[in-house]
């Protein structure tokens, strides 16, 4: 065995390694990408769901935007106050107050007892497929929740459940990522402020008579709520009452007057 050959090979490999190492370390110094240190810290403070609810491409995108000062410190709707506070400290920009948290809400209360079904549906249990059947789904009301749970599948935070034939969202678990609003074929899920004083749980723009024929829990557009609202926060458009959440103080006058009891 030729020991010399082995040593020579080892020396050559060692030398090449050393050379490449020095070269790489020099190169990494020279071509260093400048990363804002704050961005890394902000990124660490964010929840990391990558849900996109803030409007930026994932948590990395938001972190970069906050670090540059393009986005407010409380831009993450998922993290809420605690995260906003933390980011505020990192950015040193004071208050760290978050925006009023918006939560998803299903604008329908037509459950199995209250809403009539036009026919029996056989097929895939998915709202987006069922909506292609006659009358865009078995439900008598063309604006009612179908209850096949496409939103349940879309929710990454288990905040939605089907209760008695309609989807119900737990506002505490909701992280306002808006995934459910995107999948609902009937666009029934709306983002409302967490502290909203009153919500009209119906989306039907049909005439009161037509609504009454298919659902007991439908807005008939009578306008009693609008007349009785001391803040003038409710308007009735296209036979459907709508609450202006900024004006609403939550006095409850509308709830008491609603003949179909759908304001809560």
């Amino acid at each position: 065995m030729d020991l010399q050959a082995i040593l020579l090979a080892a020396a050559i490999v060692g030398a090449v390694g050393l050379f490449a190492g020095v070269l790489l370390s020099l190169a990494s110094e020279k071509f260093k990408v400048k990363v804002n240190e704050k961005e890394i810290e902000v990124r660490a403070a964010l929840p990391g769901n990558n849900c996109g609810a803030c409007g930026y491409p994932g948590c990395d995108g938001l972190a970069a935007a906050i670090a540059k000062g393009e986005a407010p410190t409380g831009a993450c709707p998922v993290g809420g106050d605690p995260v906003a506070k933390k980011i505020g400290e990192i950015m040193g920009s004071g208050d760290g107050e978050s925006a009023v948290r918006l939560v998803a809400h299903v604008m329908c209360k037509g459950d199995c007892e209250k809403a009539k079904e036009a026919y029996e549906y056989v097929g895939p249990q998915d709202c987006r497929i069922a909506t292609n059947t006659p009358g865009s789904g078995p439900k008598g009301c063309s604006k009612g929740c179908l209850g096949f749970g496409s939103c349940v599948k879309a929710c990454q935070f288990s905040a939605i459940r089907i209760e008695n034939g309609i989807a119900v969202i737990d506002p505490k678990k909701c992280k306002s990522c808006k995934q459910c609003t995107a999948v609902c074929p009937r666009h029934l899920i709306e983002m409302i402020p967490e502290n909203a004083g009153a919500v009209v749980n119906c989306s039907s723009n049909d005439f009161g008579k037509d609504v009454k024929a298919v659902c007991e829990a439908g807005c008939i557009g009578c306008g009693l709520c609008a007349k009785n609202c001391p803040q003038e926060a409710i308007t009735v458009e296209n036979h459907l009452a709508k609450v202006d959440y900024e004006k609403c103080v939550g006095c409850g006058a509308c709830k008491a007057k609603c003949p179909v009891k759908i304001i809560e």
Binding site: G123, P124, D126, R128, I129, A130, T131, N132
Partner: peptide, 13 residues
């Protein structure tokens, strides 16, 4: 399986 219905629904989507 509800093959056609599922595919048709997705096509419409």
């Amino acid at each position: 399986r509800h093959l056609t219905q599922t595919i048709a629904g997705t096509r419409k989507l």
